[in-house]
Design a protein around this nucleic acid. Structure first.
Lengths: 117, 117
DNA sequence: GGCTAACGCTTGCAAAAGCAAGCACTTGCA
DNA sequence: TGCAAGTGCTTGCTTTTGCAAGCGTTAGCC
């Protein structure tokens, strides 16, 4: 299980900000938060709310998902997560999603006995 | 831009919880938060941090993304391809993959009749 | 040199998050 | 009936978030 730790999101934000060559104050203003607070976020002294993270992401014009992932709040998607895919599929209703998820889990649970290719 | 408003996330959580027939206290325990706090979240009196939202999502086994979207914190995004995810999942064998895919297709095919609230 | 503007950071403080304890109510079982 | 256990909610309380004001530094400009 990859343990990102929320603290990492700060340095990631700083990195992205510096890559954009924008000052901390400017970014804070764009995101609608105070500059000292952004400073603290970047240094990992605060763990901002989802809303704040979202505002920062928008101000940096990076995807909120990337940020959430970085913050360990969203599962990493590099090994495509079936459950996540199911959950966000617009063509299924909630009952179907849950059914599919259960089936998947039962498969995944008993997979040791039977190995494929 | 779809403006969900953070407050909606609470009723969505409650809805999901009741659909799962799990008590507020149990869910709170599973999510690792206090039961009065969860109660307040569900009623829209508190806006939980990203971490809390994540814990709740996991406890409900719904995707954090769905929840964030519901909270207006994530823009609606195109659903990741479930079939692709199934195909590349290492924990399933071929038979299981095929079964899952079939079930998914049958769901997706007949979904017009039944819409979830 | 002095002056202005911008940088990031520190410092109290108000507001909100989050919890432990306990209340009022319902359900089932003796 | 009585009581034990479960439900959701209210009430103080501590902790954390998030900000306004201001500090020390650096860079340009006269």
């Amino acid at each position: 299980m990859r343990k990102h730790g929320v603290s990492e999101v700060g340095s990631y934000i700083r990195q992205q900000r510096e890559r954009s060559a924008i000052s901390l104050r400017k970014l804070a203003e764009r995101a609608g938060i105070s500059n000292p607070y952004l400073s603290q976020i970047e240094r990992g002294l605060r763990k901002p709310s989802a809303e704040i993270l979202n505002a920062i992401a928008r101000a940096l014009s990076i995807s909120a998902e990337t940020l959430y992932e970085r913050a360990g709040l969203l599962e990493g998607r590099d090994a495509p997560d079936i459950e996540a895919a199911i959950r966000s599929d617009a063509t299924l209703n909630e009952r179907q999603k849950q059914a599919l998820t259960e089936i998947y889990r039962s498969f995944a649970a008993g997979q040791d006995e039977e190995e494929n290719t």
